[in-house]
């Protein structure tokens, strides 16, 4: 069974857990799923086995604590330690798809922005692209996205297995991070000098390229899901 189906089945079966067992199991589930470098298929398989076991045990009056021990974090760490890593050929297409998806949206938004800008200002907006400046901006954005993912995951991780976790505090933390990283991306982008080879890239070409790229990424995703 594919990981996607296992996840759906897991969601259904989890509803049969008692509130106490559900809390214990869900914390472990999130903690294990946050390990992005591990094989998704293997992770979902063992999570399903543990859930089935817990449900069988629950029918016999056992609790998650008697089955998996008093320290869910330590138990989950043991599971993680023994799970195989995701293969590179699964990771590279996944990450490139995310990046290309982002680039396609940036191209479309850029096209629209130039069009709208020139309408408002009633004069042509400079639509040249400076190769090195653009690459620098793109890597800044990718860097802040990667850091953001890491930061949010870490915040979630710290809130697990913790009776006193404060959701509000975490939300403020993540919100602040979002604002600061936005600023950190926008400020340098405005300061980056225009350098490197440049070419003219009109608003309609930008939108067209963006759309085409988006369709390609979307089709690849559908194809890949179909092939699995």
């Amino acid at each position: 069974m594919k990981a996607k189906h296992l996840i759906e089945e897991n969601n259904r079966k989890r509803e049969q857990l008692t509130p106490e067992n559900e809390k214990y199991y869900s914390d472990m589930l999130i903690y294990i799923r946050l390990q992005l470098t591990l094989s998704e298929q293997q992770s979902e398989e063992v999570l399903m086995e543990m859930l089935d076991h817990l449900l069988d045990g629950q029918n016999e009056g056992k609790t998650a604590r008697t089955i998996f021990g008093d320290d869910p974090k330590q138990y989950a760490d043991e599971i993680i330690q023994n799970l195989p890593k995701e293969k590179k050929r699964e990771v590279i297409p996944f990450v490139s798809r995310l990046v290309l998806d982002l680039v396609s949206w940036m191209l479309m938004i850029r096209g629209v922005a130039i069009l709208v800008g020139s309408q408002i200002k009633n004069e042509a907006v400079d639509s040249s692209v400076y190769l090195f400046s653009s690459l620098l901006t793109l890597s800044l954005i990718l860097g802040s996205v990667a850091f953001g993912v890491w930061f949010i995951f870490r915040t979630i991780q710290r809130s697990l297995f913790n009776e006193h976790a404060s959701e509000k505090k975490d939300m403020v933390k993540v919100g602040l991070f979002g604002a600061i990283s936005m600023g950190l991306v926008i400020a340098p982008t405005m300061l980056i000098p225009e350098f490197g080879p440049s070419f003219h890239f009109s608003w309609w070409a930008s939108i067209l390229t963006g759309c085409a790229l988006w369709v390609i990424v979307f089709t690849l995703k559908k194809l890949e899901v179909g092939l699995r």
Partner: peptide, 15 residues
């Protein structure tokens, strides 16, 4: 043998 103990072992044996 606490019941949960087997899953890390099963994973390692599989690996």
């Amino acid at each position: 043998v606490s019941e949960g103990t087997i899953y890390p072992v099963l994973l390692r044996l599989q690996k």
